[in-house]
Simulated scan of single mutants.
Amino acid sequence: MTKLTQQNGLDKESIRSAINKYCENRNISQNELATQAGISSASISKMINGNHSDIRDGLWRKVWVVVSDGVDILINTRDHNAITKACKKARDYKLMIGITGETGMGKTTSLKVMSRKPNTYFVSFDKTMRAKQFFGMILREMGIAFEGSIHDMVNTIANELNTQDHPLLMIDESGKLTHNIILYLHVLRDKTNKNAGIILAGMPYFKNNLIKFSNKQKEGYAEFLRRINLWNEMQGLTSQEAQFICEQNGITDKETVKELSRKKRFGDLVNEILLYKEIDD
């Protein structure tokens, strides 16, 4: 496993390789990656071209957190392992499983790791999206160029999933899904429940709102809620996991490790580690 830090410093060649692979797999530009990492596009260009003697280690670390999807420091946490098991269960038994957790818990990172597997599709809902944009995004993720009505889009997605071997569709930010999209997802689920697994990940209010609207007998919510076979609730980092992550990233000062070990959210811990290393540099 490539680590963020090595005994002799950052493994910059691995990061350069990961940058190219990340941009290629997601069909994004260097400028877009720079925006995601919060650094300048000029710095990304220097990293790729090998002309990076003046690039501070802190900038390399920011890029690594993005292009590695946090895999190296997340891989052994109980939440990541629980999500991995949930995805496997959904895929193997054609289930629809809900995953809830506060922001920064590592849901998105874990799902992106799973998206590297064959016949696995990851999309993240944006509350500004209309239904046609959302299902169009799923089609693009599946590599399908298609124009038509929402009804035809849903049918095309279902038909493709039903031709594949153990496919898995993962939808992040599910708590923001609109009523209209939930009704269409209900249809998609019914059309694929004998061949595909679905993961719905969101904040804790995702499950709470489904229950609330179901109790209020809002159209489609009770039926959709019943189709979610299992729920997984993320628990956050243990102090031992946080300590291990600190040590893996070269933080050995006992007081600093003790303070950072109180972090329950993976994202908060990563940000604190980056800040610590930025100051240390």
Rank of each mutant, 00 (worst) to 15 (best):
E160S: 15
M153H: 03
L139W: 07
R140Y: 01
P167F: 10
T163L: 12
H166E: 10
A131I: 15
L161Y: 05
S124W: 00
I138D: 02
P167G: 09
L139C: 04
V154E: 05
I150Q: 06
M153D: 01
M142D: 06
T128I: 14
N155S: 13
D152S: 12
Q133M: 13
I144C: 04
M137Q: 09
T163I: 12
N159T: 13
D126F: 10
I150F: 00
L161P: 04
D152C: 04
D152G: 00
G148W: 05
L161M: 14
F125Q: 11
I138V: 15
N155R: 08
S124A: 11
G143P: 03
L161E: 03
M129S: 12
E147Y: 04
I138R: 02
A158P: 00
E160W: 01
H166M: 11
T128H: 14
M137K: 12
I138N: 01
R140K: 11
D152H: 08
L139V: 04
N162H: 11
A158M: 12
F125I: 02
H166C: 03
M129V: 07
R140H: 04
G136V: 03
E147R: 13
R130N: 15
F125H: 13
Q133D: 15
F135C: 07
G143T: 02
N155V: 07
N159S: 14
M129Y: 15
A131T: 15
E141C: 07
E160C: 12
D165P: 05
R140M: 07
K132H: 11
F125C: 10
D152L: 10
F146E: 00
M129H: 14
G148F: 06
E147T: 06
A158T: 03
R140V: 03
F146D: 00
T156M: 09
A131P: 00
T156D: 01
K127I: 13
N162M: 11
F125E: 09
N159R: 13
E147C: 03
